[in-house]
Every structure is written in C-alpha cells, then in structure tokens.
Design a protein around this nucleic acid. Structure first.
Lengths: 230, 230
DNA sequence: GTCGGTTTTTGGTATGACAAGACAGCAGGT
DNA sequence: ACCTGCTGTCTTGTCATACCAAAAACCGAC
C-alpha cells in the first residue's frame, strides 16, 4: 500500500502483543524466524523491530533478543521523553513544564480534599510521617518527598497520573538532583507537606490548593536561585 | 563502542538540529551522502533516520527525503501518540484518558475565572459566538467546539497546553468523530459552553469548574451511549 | 515560458557475508 | 556428582552490493 513493508509486520506483532499471544516478558522470535514467517528480508525485520521498540512495545537491548514490554502509559511518556529532554534545554522549557506540574498537582490536591478515601488518607499520613522522619537525611528526604507526591498522583485511581508523575520526576530530575539539600530546606518542605495534608483532612480544597501552590512556587524559587533564570 | 553505531549519527544530527545548522523544514542529506560523511553503511544510516523520526525530530514520509521538524511539545506528544493509540483500545483506556482531560480542563477554567485577561475574555466570547452560529451545521459546530476548548488551553500562555489539546483531539477523535451529531445535541453543548463563559465572566472558579465538569460528563455519557462501555 | 517526456537521483527492499557478543553444552578437574 | 572453563553455535550488529520503482531534475519541443 503505502510503500512500507515493515508496517505490516509492526501491525501484526502489535496485535499479537495486545491479544496476548505474546505476553509481557516474552522474547520476540529471532530475526531469521520472522523473515521466514513474513517472507521478507532481514532489513525489513530489523526495521520493524526498531519501530516496535520506538513505540515502546518491546525493549531492544543490543545483542539481545527484543523483549515484549508491558504496555502502559509510562511507555508512552518514555517515548515522549527523548524530545522533552531537548525542549527543556531551550529557554523557558523547564518553567513551562514545571508550571504544568503545579497546575496538575493543584488539581490533584483539590480532588484529594474532596474525595480522598480512608485508604488514601492513611497513605498520605504514612508518606508524610516517613517524610518527617527523614528530615535529617537529605537523600532519604528526597526519596520520601517523591513518594509523598506520588501518593497524590495515586488518589484518583487513574493509571495515567502515576505515569505522569514518573515522567515529571525523570524529566525534572536533572534540575532537582543538582539542588543543594540542607536540613533547613527539608524542614520547610516538610511543613509545606503537612499543611497540604492538613487542608485535605479538613476537606478544604481551596486551602489545599493554596498550600500546594505555595509549596511548589517555593520549590521553583529554589530552582531559580540555584540555576539562574531558565 | 557498545554496539550501536546509529546512536552516534542520531546524536550528531540531533545536535545539528538544535544548533540550527539544520533548520526546521530543511531536508536531511541523502542517505548516500550521510553514509559517506559518517563512513557507515546505509543500513546504519537508515536506522538512524528511523530513530530520529521516532524521536519526532524529523518526519520521514516514504519515498521522500526526511524533513527536519520544528522541535516542540507537540512533537513530543506525537511520539507518544502511537503508544497511546494502542492503550486506548484496551479496557478503560479511553475513560482514563478522558478523565485526565476533564481534570485538566477543570483546572483551566478555574485559572481562566481567576486570571483571564481582557484579550482572553474577548477570545472566549468570539469562540462562543462562532460556536453559537454553527448550531445548525454539525460539521461546523464540531469545529468551533474544538476551537472554543482550544481557547481555554491558550489562556495560561504555556505552550504545553495547546500541544496537549491537539493531542487530546487527535487521540480521542476516533470516538468523537463517529458520534451522532444532531442540532439538539449541539444546542445542549452550546448552552454548556455559555454557562462556562458566564462563570468565568463572573470570576467564579467553582461555578466554572462545575459547569465544565457537567459539560464533559455529559459528553462522556454520550460517548458511552454510543459505544457502550469502553 | 510551458508542457511533456526522458534521464538521474534517491529511497525501499533483497541478498549474502562477516564480526562479535551471548548462550548452551561438553570436557576435564576436583 | 559438582563445579569450572572452553568451545561451538546461535543471534544480533554491521557492511557491501544490487535491483526496482518512485520522485525529482533535466531537457528539448512547442
């Protein structure tokens, strides 16, 4: 049809993965088997595999058989990651991305304040407690900080959000990771987290959003202080 | 080094694009020229081009020279698109994605109610008027509906949002496009749009969010009615 | 200058070959 | 019998070459 022989192979294997014939973790058939099955040259087979990999359906490590990957929104965001990484290096890129994060998390805490279930509340409290215990260990604090925010992304029960959180963490890690981490800073962040949880417990979405925005705005100021205007 | 010759080429060309040596719209050198320049086989060249295309840095139509693409968040979302398309076909996929859209647009209308500028208000009114004029022309109504929502995504002035809107439109078009379009339905949607704008004009974020949620929830019910549970 | 056909270029595919990493099975030592 | 190290095979990564068909460039007739 469209001059692209590999597309058929990609389509077929994609279907095969979705229908479960090829399950996550399975190995793709060897290239020569595929060329026999589809009656195409190895050139096309390799191209098809390459496309499948770029679509996130398989992971192709050099010199290894491609492994079928569990489909998920994370894979989609992984694919976008390579471009986002470039965009972040142009002026305003980080700011724009971080602003979307602020807006999204503002929504999440509103949602949490309005409809967090008991288990969500428990998870929030647990994450907050872990975060508080780690104030004097900046490495640990960073970790629990991430996990605290992750709880927020989990509350709606929509798998897209955790994937987005992972993406944010990955994309913004270069900035975050290089920021100075001191106990004082941790204390401020912890109290911000506490304020957010308190507002959620009070079922007050406006207060929760305000606390969240102030928290992330402060974090952004820190980033700007560290890196200058970006 | 580690077995992937194409990576060097990808890296070099990527840099070349970012540094402006290759501007948007330019054609990539012919494959045979690239193999001469990098002293590699055509196999590797083609693989590199394929990777660049999957990264969204170039568009490679069959039988045409690859064209350098303007880097942007849209390209990033395009790259994710091929995977999202698959995810939408599994149970709950569309619902999950649509829910994120509801949440995001809820945020956007809150933001609009709180801080829309005069020009934003004017754009909203214009989009609304155009939408109202198209009630009896379902094709036109669909168009102006899209544009009305697009205005919301433009208000924050963050280029990420319009890109997301385009992505939503593309991804959800298969559902939307096959929905029955009748003037009555258009009328309901138009009055929902009006309610949203009214709330924004009143600077009432809660009302705006409520109106938006009710609007999109109704739209979702329509989708479910049309397609059954998905 | 425009049009239509012809030549050249260029991408898509096939084929065969070789290098090198990964892996399994075999042989030898303990 | 078990562990260890080697070797042969399998598999992927890369290269070189060739052919075809589509696109683009070219060129001559009008």
């Amino acid at each position: 049809m469209t001059g692209r022989a590999a597309d058929n192979v990609v389509q077929t294997i994609t279907n095969r993965i979705h229908s479960g014939v090829l399950a996550a973790g399975d190995l793709l058939p060897a290239e020569r088997d595929l060329m026999a099955e589809f009656d195409i040259s190895r050139t096309v087979v390799r191209e098809a595999v390459r496309v499948l990999a770029s679509h996130g359906l398989v992971t192709a490590k050099p010199r290894h058989r491609p492994v079928v990957r569990k489909a998920g929104f994370e894979a989609a965001l992984d694919a976008a990651g390579s471009i986002v990484g470039n965009l972040l290096q142009q002026p305003g890129g980080v700011r724009n991305l971080f602003n979307t994060r602020i807006m999204l998390e503002a929504s999440l805490v509103r949602e949490a304040a309005l409809s967090a279930k008991k288990t969500d509340i428990a998870a929030l409290k647990a994450a907050l407690a872990a975060n508080g215990d780690a104030i004097d260990d900046s490495e640990q604090f960073y970790q629990t900080d991430q996990e605290f925010h992750a709880v927020l992304y989990n509350i709606p029960g929509n798998p897209v959000y955790p994937a987005i959180h992972r993406a944010y963490s990955t994309w913004l890690a270069p900035q975050w990771g290089r920021m100075p981490r001191i106990a004082d800073r941790n204390r401020i962040n912890f109290s911000a987290h506490t304020a957010i949880v308190d507002a959620i417990l009070l079922r007050d979405p406006d207060a929760a959003e305000a606390a969240l925005r102030s928290h992330l705005a402060a974090a952004w100021d820190q980033v700007r202080l560290t890196f200058g205007d970006i």
